[in-house]
Write a protein that binds this DNA or RNA. Structure first.
Length: 548
RNA sequence: GGCCCGUUCGUCCAGUGGUUAGGACGCGGCCCUUUCACGGCUGAAACACGGGUUCGAAUCCCGUACGGGUCACCA
């Protein structure tokens, strides 16, 4: 039987492919890694995690990181996913060196980088396997396969298409020709070579040597539509794309024996493997993988919407990769995190629980090291996409916005209360007059509820006497003195010693000003806030509040 | 069910035969303080269990339990 019938799109011999995709010219020790997502409408945080590991490993060794779109299942494909993947990677600084880099645009000499466009390559390899007797066509129907499984379950033997259960494994050429003549759909299966007690060992970079029973299953290589299964595509692609390190989720551990067998049959040296544990989530008493359905934080889109700065997600993930990152960061507060060398060998073998609280803490630190300008730029990009109304305000006066951001962020102990950009509209909205106007209603309520009630004439006096030229200390002294004339003790201690002699203490006075100026009781340093607002706004707002 | 993987404070990690089992986040307390933060100090908090090996085990071996993965023409 001519194998061409089963692989109509085959176009090369193995030798031709070897010549077409020669070994890469890279320095010794350089790692070539890849990320191979299927475009099913979603970018999982785990994909970002794997990409981070892969890309860092490649780059710190002088190698390459490429993106391969694994779109061999046309049923599950969701349009637009590739753009989403590209945007996600780009947002967190993980753009690939090779592969699709923009809509339909590819770079790199080992393409095409979409598996759906590599059919001739897969079929060429399968044809060789067929010719060698290492693969064969199978015309079993879904019903027949189901019946097989039912029988296996009944007989309590391992389910699967193997050995004597592999009904098409040893069919005669006549049977095959007959099925073909009827136009029956077929798949191509591997003729498994694993012996009954044979074992294979996987030298996993993270986990050390792992041992499994050798593969005995005649796994499907080519589906009825002529597309490869993951197994075939992985082996063929990672060989011809010259991947040195396959970094993938540990759900692939169990299929390693199949892959190993195929590499051996082709006579190819397998790459190194590193199976990483998935990021999990606490769910009641147990833990499970972060799921697309139940956990919004499973999607990279969630982090983009929340406006976590690039570095925050990266550094949090780096922490999961190697706990020593934290120590490194503490010792090197100013170095870019790309300087941190990751080591696969040090990765945890068990799955890490995703901890949003920790992420926030990391983010706080990351934002803490950013300049007001950098925060402004990043937050504006976020706002443009997620809060247009705020974006307009924020962009209207870039200098004003940056001074707002910079409040209490300079000096020895910078304020670290920004975690994600989406908190900004609520946190600093009151600085903008149009937003402040919208907050007036609640401001009045808060003002009316103030205890002790604001002293008559206080607002007018502050508005009257406010001198923005005063340094913080002088200003404080001035305000304390002024407060005293309205019955506010200069500090809490004095007040506590003689509560009946005062209306309240300095903190109460500050609250009055805060509510009038910011429509809330909690604000950053009052002095600095007033400086940024500027005398005009301060006077206007205080004066308007006199009637509250 | 078979096969495989995993198990140190609530969480993330250090620890590779001899440590008062360390750090970070979170939590409690104290301090600083014009509110909220920041910061400083401090406290509570863990080697899944049972057997070995050893002078000595979180570290090595075996078993148990509990989690997880996988057994598709999905990746």
């Amino acid at each position: 039987m001519d194998s061409a019938v089963f692989t109509p799109e085959a176009a090369y011999t193995l030798d031709q492919l070897e010549a077409k995709f020669p070994p890469r010219d890279l320095p010794a020790g350089a790692c070539v890694t890849r990320f191979g997502p299927s475009p099913t409408g979603f970018m999982h945080i785990g994909g970002l995690y794997t990409s981070l590991v892969s890309r860092r490993l490649a780059h710190q060794s002088g190698g390459k990181f490429f993106l391969r779109i694994e779109d061999t299942d046309k049923k599950r494909e969701v349009e637009g996913t590739v753009d989403l993947i590209l945007a996600s990677l780009a947002t967190y600084g993980l753009s690939p060196d090779e592969g699709e880099i923009a809509d339909g645009q590819e770079v790199g000499a080992y393409g095409p980088y979409r598996q759906s466009e590599r059919k001739p390559i897969y079929q060429s390899c399968v044809r060789w396997l067929l010719d060698q007797g290492h693969a064969y066509p199978c015309f079993a129907t879904a019903d027949e396969l189901q019946a097989l499984r039912d029988e296996q379950t009944k007989r309590k033997v391992p389910p699967g298409y193997y050995g004597a259960w592999a009904i098409w494994r040893d069919k005669s050429a006549d049977d095959v020709a007959a099925a073909l003549a009827q136009g029956l759909p077929f798949v191509i299966r591997l003729r498994a070579t694993g012996g009954r007690d044979e074992r294979v060992t996987l030298p996993d970079t993270i986990r050390g040597d792992l041992e499994f029973p050798a593969n005995q299953t005649d796994v499907v290589l080519l589906k009825a539509d002529g597309m490869p299964t993951y197994h075939l595509a992985h082996v063929v692609d990672d060989h011809f794309m010259r991947t040195t390190d396959v970094i993938r989720g540990n759900e692939w551990l169990a299929s390693y024996p199949m892959h190993a067998q195929m590499f051996a049959l082709f006579g190819w040296a397998p790459p190194r493997f590193a199976h990483i544990s998935p990021i999990e989530k606490q769910d009641g008493g147990s833990r499970r993988k972060l799921s697309k359905r139940h956990d919004p934080e499973a999607s990279v889109g969630w982090y983009m919407e929340a406006g976590y700065p690039l570095g925050a997600v990266t550094e949090y993930l780096l922490n999961l990769i190697d706990g020593r990152f934290e120590d490194w960061r503490a010792a090197n507060p100013d170095l870019p995190n790309t300087e941190f060398q990751i080591e696969l060998e040090r990765m945890s073998r068990s799955g890490a629980l995703f901890d949003l609280v920790k992420l926030d803490s990391v983010s706080r630190e990351v934002v803490g090291t950013m300049s007001a300008r950098a925060i402004y730029d990043a937050a504006l990009v976020w706002a443009s996409g997620h809060d247009p109304e705020f974006a307009v305000r924020f962009a209207a006066d870039a200098d004003y916005s940056q001074r707002i951001i910079d409040i209490e962020r300079h000096g020895e102990r910078p304020r670290k209360d920004i975690v994600r950009w989406d908190q900004l509209p609520a946190d600093i909205g009151y600085f903008f007059d149009d937003r402040y106007a919208e907050l007036l209603g609640e401001a009045k309520e808060t003002f009316a509820a103030l205890q002790p009630a604001p002293a008559e004439g206080l607002l007018a006096a502050v508005a009257e006497g406010y001198d923005p030229a005063l340094e913080r200390d002088q200003w404080l002294e001035w305000l304390r003195d002024l407060g005293l004339t309205f019955g506010y003790a200069p500090n809490a201690k004095t007040f506590k010693q003689a509560p009946d002699q005062y209306r309240g203490h300095f903190g109460d006075l500050a609250s009055v000003l805060r509510v009038a100026l910011a429509a809330r009781r909690n604000t950053p340093d009052l002095h600095e806030m007033m400086q940024v607002l500027g005398k005009e706004r301060v006077v206007t707002r205080l004066t308007a509040a006199i009637g509250w």
